[in-house]
Amino acid sequence: MNDLGPEYVAARRVLLDALAALGDHRDSLILVGAQAVYHHTGDADLNVPLMTTDADLAIDVAGLADAPELGGALRGAGFTPGPNPGHWVAASDVAVDLMVVPHQAGTTKASARAARLAPHEKLTARIAPGLEPALIDNEVITIISFEADDARTFDLRVAGPAALLVAKVIKISERLDQADKQPDRLKEKDALDAFRLLQAVETDVLADGLRVHLDDEHASSATAKAIEQVRHHGASPDSRLAVLASEAASGDPTVPPAFAALVTDLLGSL
């Protein structure tokens, strides 16, 4: 743990703060994002340190209780709402993002960004397409601190590697669509996280997870879209995902062909 970046250590501390504050709701939370990716991959044999500056939690609204009110619980723990729905910032300026999948968002308005989780605060969580597989593809893991003087541990559902791959690919594909108008939203690190998953997790394990998603009413469309996107943007060394992952790895020339080969193997397994 000593070689972890300070940003990642701080992000884990703030995740634990949020889990402590939301104790009565922890059964409805699922860890997604980079911290979940790193749980499955470790450093994945890359010369790129594990680094994230926040924590991402999906809310499974199906079991969410009305009380305690989510926003009040977070405010009581020192978090303040940020400029965007679901973005909660700790006193250390490290954030936790709370997200809800569209079919649980309480609204069908196409322009809506915030989920409607009444009686919880209106801007408590943002709507995040692509996380649907995480609701059915997860396992309970004990989350620990990366600091010797912090003995806190919490049992929390963590999204499976196939669910995280779908989420990453959906996120990147949305930003590729916006890249011409908002190039700053396209993050190379998301592609590198996808590569970490492809590299560290057995192809058959990823394929089995994707098949489970495809049999689910709500997860199937997100997973089918992710498969098509990775086929289109990741199956050759000069594809956008492979190049982005290489850029995040300081231009490592071995990444694009490895990325493409792993994608080709995964598509072949499906």
Rank of each mutant, 00 (worst) to 15 (best):
D208I: 01
A248W: 00
H213M: 09
F195I: 07
H233A: 05
L206M: 04
A179V: 04
L186S: 11
L192Y: 02
L186N: 13
T203D: 12
L214E: 14
K181S: 13
E188H: 03
S236D: 07
K187L: 14
L198T: 07
D216T: 08
K189R: 15
T223L: 08
E202L: 08
A226S: 07
G234I: 09
S220D: 10
A200Q: 13
L186V: 14
A191W: 00
E228G: 15
A224E: 15
A245N: 06
H218F: 13
G209V: 08
S236E: 09
A219T: 08
F195Q: 05
G209W: 07
L206Q: 03
L210A: 14
L210R: 08
V201K: 05
L206K: 03
D208E: 11
A200Y: 05
A194I: 04
R211S: 05
Q199E: 13
G234S: 11
E202M: 06
L186M: 10
A194H: 02
P237N: 03
H218G: 04
A249S: 15
G251V: 07
R185G: 10
V230Y: 04
D208K: 06
T223I: 09
A191D: 02
K181P: 00
D215N: 13
D238K: 11
A194G: 09
Q199C: 09
L197S: 04
L186I: 11
D184S: 15
E202P: 04
L192G: 03
D190W: 01
V243D: 14
Q229I: 00
A245T: 08
A222D: 14
A224C: 13
L206F: 03
D190L: 04
D190S: 09
S221E: 12
R211Y: 00
A242L: 07
P237K: 02
K189P: 03
D252K: 09
A245L: 05
D193K: 01
P253L: 09
A249V: 13
T203R: 13
R185H: 06
A191M: 02
S250A: 13
L214C: 14
A249M: 11
D190T: 07
A248N: 01
F195G: 01
K189V: 06
L206P: 02
R240H: 04
R240D: 07
L214I: 14
R196W: 05
R240L: 03
Q229R: 10
D252V: 06
R211A: 10
E247L: 15
D252I: 06
D190N: 05
D208H: 03
P183W: 09
A249D: 11
A219Y: 04
R185S: 12
S250R: 11
A245I: 05
L241V: 06
A219K: 10
D193M: 02
P183G: 09
K225H: 02
V212I: 14
L198F: 09
E247N: 15
R240F: 00
K187R: 15
A194P: 01
E228R: 10
K187D: 14
L244G: 03
V201W: 01
D238Q: 12
K225D: 02
L198V: 09
D184M: 14
L198P: 10
E217A: 12
P237H: 00
S236M: 03
D238V: 11
P183F: 10
A235H: 03
V212Y: 05
